[in-house]
Design a protein around this nucleic acid. Structure first.
Length: 257
DNA sequence: ATGGCTCCATACTGGAGA
């Protein structure tokens, strides 16, 4: 099973790019973030026409997450991260697909830091860690995929010294990510490519993509039962070079059936 | 260090992203 994650940066504005990518690479499952569309404006018909069934949790203007599948409609487990009934931002959706629990997440950016947005990020992170432990306790294959807005280590940024005060790289953020993986999660890309320079995001400024001035912030975390099935993984970095592309590139893993 | 780009909302500008 090939599972992908892609921060599309506007599911309607980027629809031609999304459809082209689905058609060319045909992931079995695709987790999308930053739909930037309310629930009723999700382009369901076009995605169905492309061969996918979808569940999604939209929101006006910002955020929004979806899970697409071409191997049977995702069986929704939840569309809210537990732990805060006041949280109205659409940043998490979870489904069962052929025995795999797939969590699709869009962790808050958190800038400027410090400040209320950074506090919200760390609070959301704590809720994710609590839920992740609950999932681990189930001892089933779980894939937590998405835009974590975390640069895990120095080798995940083109110039890490420029990011030291940024919410994506501050010590609290890196520590939260390290604590999460220490529960027993496998960072799929970094496990298969321990030392390579691999980015998933290139900003729109100053020809960042052409200069490969990027960040690795979109991640796959696998429970032990899923990590055992890991065959391969990579970034479709060429997609970032397409006309009207998102500033993120798609990331994917292949799991043994 | 700064400013650069692109989305969405419903507008001629601003918030947010990372």
């Amino acid at each position: 099973m090939k599972i992908a994650t892609y921060n599309v940066n506007g599911v309607n504005g980027r629809l031609p790019v999304l459809l082209r990518w689905l058609n060319e690479t045909k992931p079995d499952v695709a987790c999308l973030q930053e739909l930037k569309a309310p629930q009723e404006k999700f382009p369901e018909a076009a995605i169905n026409d492309a061969g996918y069934q979808a569940i999604w949790h939209g929101q006006k203007s910002w955020n929004g997450v979806a899970i697409l599948s071409r191997i049977g409609k995702p069986a929704e487990i939840r569309q809210v991260l537990p732990g805060d009934t006041e949280d109205e931002q659409s940043r998490y959706i979870e489904a069962n697909i052929q025995g795999i629990t797939v969590g699709c997440l869009y962790l808050p950016n958190g800038n400027p830091a410090p400040g209320p947005k950074f506090d919200y990020k760390l609070g959301w992170f704590a809720r994710l860690a609590t839920h992740a432990q609950t999932l681990l306790n189930q001892q089933v294959p779980v894939v937590l995929a998405g835009d974590y807005n975390v640069i895990p280590t120095d080798i995940d940024a083109y110039k890490p010294e420029r990011w030291v005060d940024d919410a994506l790289f501050r010590p609290e953020t890196r520590q939260a990510f390290a604590n999460l993986t220490a529960q027993g999660w496998t960072d799929a890309i970094r496990t298969l490519y321990p030392t390579e320079t691999i980015y998933t995001f290139w900003d729109y400024f100053r020809n960042a993509y052409e200069r490969n001035a990027g960040l690795r912030i979109d991640h796959f975390l696998l429970s032990p039962q899923a990590a055992k099935l890991l065959v391969s993984a990579n970034v479709d970095r060429n997609v970032r070079g397409w006309e009207k592309s998102s500033d993120h590139g798609p990331v994917w893993i292949e799991l043994k059936d």
